[in-house]
Amino acid sequence: MSGNKKTAGFEPKIVGFLCNWCSYAGADKAGTAQTPYPPNVHVVKVMCSGRVDPQFVMEAYENGADGVIILACHPGDCHYKEGNYRAVQRNRILKQLLSQFGIEEERCRLDYVSAGEGEKFVRVITEMVESVKRLGPLSVNKKRAAV
């Protein structure tokens, strides 16, 4: 119940890093299907999920994002062979780093969306928005807002 108070009227800002080949195309597929989903995720296109530097993620939080989602090609499907494996490796390290900063794990999600998975894209985005809503605004941001 306490969660409800927190989430009432709260619309999180989420940055989504989408690889050009699968996930970005998956997002476009959801578009072509005209399936509505919450507009909270702002997309930054990268050529490959392997390009996502932990620094980008930190920068997003610092600039007011309440969550970050990284979407990659499915394992084995990366257009550049293994960029998504690197992304997974980096994400593991990133999560440890985030916990040190007191940022909840659910605020940073890595998932796989293929070019054909428009529906999965919608589902993943919707879940992400809901889970960040449940967490409420990121506390570093709250502090920032208070200053």
């Binding site: 050529m47 392997g50 932990p54 550049y80 293994e82």
Partner: peptide, 20 residues
């Protein structure tokens, strides 16, 4: 793909058109 760009610990690699 830019994988080396984000992998370089010295930040010595630039990914053209997708720079940091």
């Amino acid at each position: 793909c830019g994988t080396c760009v984000s992998g370089c610990p010295a930040g010595a690699i630039t990914g053209n058109h997708f720079t940091n």
